[in-house]
Every structure is written in structure tokens, then in C-alpha cells.
């Protein structure tokens, strides 16, 4: 009975060390501390303010920058695409214009060639006609000359004969000579 309290007294500090450690330990579980509940209330206020600042100002600002960049890149791409389409169209136009010009030139050349051919043909035909006409003319003239020559032949023969007869016999009978010549030449 006497020893027991002393043993307790001896053991008391030993028991108290872990006991105090538990009581003092884990300040997070000391719910009697007004600061512990205070930090939750303050935390709620601060977190609420944080959330509002983020959702109202900070994050929309980031969002705006990102959206700006997206739209800018998109519009730049659109501009580039449009420029490319325009360039393509211009190049196609150029090609078609060149093609058309070549076609036109070819048609032109062909037309000129055919015109030249036609005019040459016409010229040739005209020349031929003129020549033919000249030939015909000449032929007519030749015929006329011949006929003329032929018609004057009897006259010449008659006069020559008269002259000859007159020289030979000294007399002349125009009538007889003419009939004689006519008889011979007939």
C-alpha cells in the first residue's frame, strides 16, 4: 500500500510524456482552438474571393487573349487562302487569256492566209480572163486581118493582072481580067 503511490509517482512523468505529446500533438485536431475554426471561415472568404477574381477577371482575360489569337490566326489563314484563290484565279485567267489570244492569232493568220489565197486566186483568175480576152481579141484581129487580106487578095490579083496584061499586051479589059481572075481564084 505504501509502495504503490511511489510507483505511480515514478511512473507519472513517463506516462505524461506520451500523454502530453498526444494532447499537444496534432494541432490540426485541437478543435477547441478558435484559430482552427477561424482559418476555415477565413479560408472560405479567401477562397470565395479567389474564385470571384478568377471567374470575373483573371480567367476571362486569358480566354480573351486565347480567343484573339485563334481568331487572328484564323483570319490570317482566311486572308492567305483568299489571296491564294485570287492568285489561282488570276493565273487561270492569264492562261485562258493566253490561250484565247493564241486561238485568235491562229484564226487571224488563217484568215489572212485564206484571204491572201483567195485574192491570189482571184488575181490569177482575172489575169487568166484578161489574157483569154486578149487572146480572143488577138484572134479576132488575126481573123479580121486574114479576112481582110483574103478579101483584098482578088483585088490585088486583079490589079496586078491588069498591070501585067497592060504591060504585055498594052491594052486592058478590066471586065475580062476581073472575071478571069475571079475564075482562077475561085
Amino acid at each position: 500500500m505504501y509502495r504503490t503511490p511511489r510507483l505511480f509517482l515514478f511512473a507519472a512523468p513517463l506516462a505524461a510524456v506520451p500523454g502530453r505529446a498526444v494532447a499537444a500533438g496534432m494541432p490540426q485536431l485541437n478543435f477547441h482552438d478558435p484559430l482552427l475554426i477561424g482559418q476555415v471561415v477565413w479560408g472560405a472568404v479567401i477562397f470565395g474571393g479567389f474564385y470571384l477574381a478568377l471567374s470575373r477577371f483573371a480567367l476571362p482575360r486569358v480566354e480573351r487573349v486565347l480567343t484573339n489569337r485563334r481568331t487572328r490566326i484564323q483570319s490570317d489563314l482566311d486572308v492567305a487562302r483568299k489571296a491564294k484563290a485570287e492568285a489561282d484565279r488570276a493565273s487561270a485567267e492569264l492562261l485562258s487569256a493566253r490561250h484565247e489570244a493564241a486561238e485568235q492569232a491562229r484564226a487571224h493568220v488563217e484568215r489572212i492566209q485564206s484571204e491572201a489565197r483567195a485574192s491570189a486566186d482571184a488575181h490569177a483568175a482575172e489575169t487568166a480572163k484578161r489574157l483569154e480576152a486578149e487572146i480572143a481579141n488577138a484572134e479576132t484581129r488575126i481573123t479580121q486581118s486574114r479576112e481582110q487580106a483574103l478579101s483584098s487578095l482578088s483585088e490585088i490579083a486583079t490589079s496586078t493582072t491588069q498591070d501585067l496584061v497592060a504591060r504585055l499586051i498594052g491594052t486592058q479589059d478590066e471586065q475580062t481580067v476581073a472575071s478571069a481572075v475571079k475564075r482562077v481564084s475561085a
Partner: peptide, 30 residues
């Protein structure tokens, strides 16, 4: 006010994040 170092560091943390976002996004560069 029951204001311990815990809410103080909450404020500091929140301020750091907000300043980071504010200063970071201030150039708003493409």
C-alpha cells in the same frame, strides 16, 4: 479576428496566383 498564419498564407498564395495571371497576361501578345 481569429486571423492566424494559415489565412495569411492563403492570402499570399491567392495573391501569387492572381499576380502571376495578371502580370503574365498583361502583354496579351499573340
Amino acid at each position: 479576428l481569429r486571423f492566424s498564419q494559415s489565412p495569411l498564407f492563403m492570402l499570399i498564395a491567392v495573391a501569387i496566383v492572381l499576380v502571376f495571371l495578371y502580370v503574365g497576361m498583361r502583354p496579351a501578345a499573340v
